[in-house]
């Protein structure tokens, strides 16, 4: 069967690849949006912490024999702790300053984290294979579905929907939304906003590390893997609109799929299509598809 002169099976497998990439975009831009909302910091270190998640998964297996499933929880926890240290040590000093300082500081942290790991492991990829239970593929009749890729999409969706639910539908989320609008007033009501800010940063970077562990078996693990991805993720955030939770998730998945289809129809454009869309969105909706005009 063919659609527009392309075989259906090729379309479907690119759609799945697009969904996998879109899942990473969604989790990463979600974390960026949550952090930007409450901290007003554009967390450039997000890509490096995503990479750290993947490297930790590899290190766990390599040095300690700890398997994928344990690291799927342990790596985000370790990165969250690192994030809490970063927030208490550095970020809390710059909230009153221009966005540019947050960007520069987190860019600096990125270079440090990437540089340290690069000096240990170089830039060639580290091998990591999918866990036994998820290796292999399922034949659906119309296409062959690699089990691990299906798991990535499923796990990402669960995490994204869970995060959305907590932020939009719970009391904790109400504090977070109110804190995003007017942190001083929320504090005047007796809520420990500084603690909330610290934990939010920890949670945001834990999401990045979770995505990193998910990515470990499908993307080459290397100290530079975050760089390639984070630029696209920033474009996703700009397209979706900074600070919108649902917007980040939908835009991430949508752009992953668009990228996938571009690979089928015009592969040369697949790495630029996101930026072309970004330019068009910025022309017509400068605040992003889901963003609110200020």
């Amino acid at each position: 069967m063919e659609i527009f002169g392309r075989p259906l099976s090729a379309m479907l497998s690119q759609l799945l690849l697009g969904l996998v990439n879109g899942s990473f975009y969604a989790i990463l831009s979600l974390g960026l949006a949550v952090i930007f909302g409450l901290l007003n910091v554009i967390n450039f270190a997000h890509g490096a912490l995503f990479m750290l998640g993947a490297v930790l998964a590899w290190m766990g297996l390599e040095y300690l024999g700890v398997n994928y499933w344990v690291m799927l929880f342990a790596a985000p926890l370790i990165v969250a702790l690192l994030g809490i240290v970063i927030e208490r040590l550095f970020l809390k000093r710059i909230y009153k300053l221009d966005h540019l300082y947050g960007l520069l500081l987190t860019l600096g942290l990125t270079l440090v984290i990437e540089g340290v790991l690069r000096s240990f492991y170089g830039v060639s990829g580290l091998p990591y294979s999918a866990p036994e239970a998820l290796s292999g593929a399922t034949d659906l009749g119309f296409m062959v579905l690699p089990n691990y890729r299906a798991w990535v999409v499923l796990a990402s969706l669960v995490v994204c929907v869970g995060t959305w639910y907590v932020i939009e539908r719970t009391k904790l989320g109400a504090y977070l939304r109110a804190g995003t609008e007017n942190p001083r007033l929320v504090e005047a009501f007796g809520v420990n906003v500084p603690l909330m800010v610290t934990l939010t940063y920890g949670f945001g970077v834990a999401l990045a590390a979770f995505a990193g562990v998910l990515a470990a078996p499908v993307i080459q693990i290397s100290p530079l893997m975050g760089q390639n991805l984070i630029i696209v993720v920033f474009a996703v955030v700009v397209i979706g609109g900074m600070g919108s939770i649902l917007g980040s998730i939908l835009t991430g998945l949508g752009l992953g799929i668009i990228e996938g289809f571009t690979k089928v129809f015009y592969p040369e454009a697949s790495s630029t299509v996101v930026f072309v869309i970004m330019a068009i969105v910025l022309l017509f909706r400068p605040a992003g598809l889901f963003g609110k005009e200020k």
Binding site: R184, E187, A188, F189, G190, V191, N192, V193, P194
Partner: peptide, 8 residues
């Protein structure tokens, strides 16, 4: 006291 404690 920090702001968030005063309400209490």
């Amino acid at each position: 006291l920090p702001t968030y404690q005063i309400a209490h």
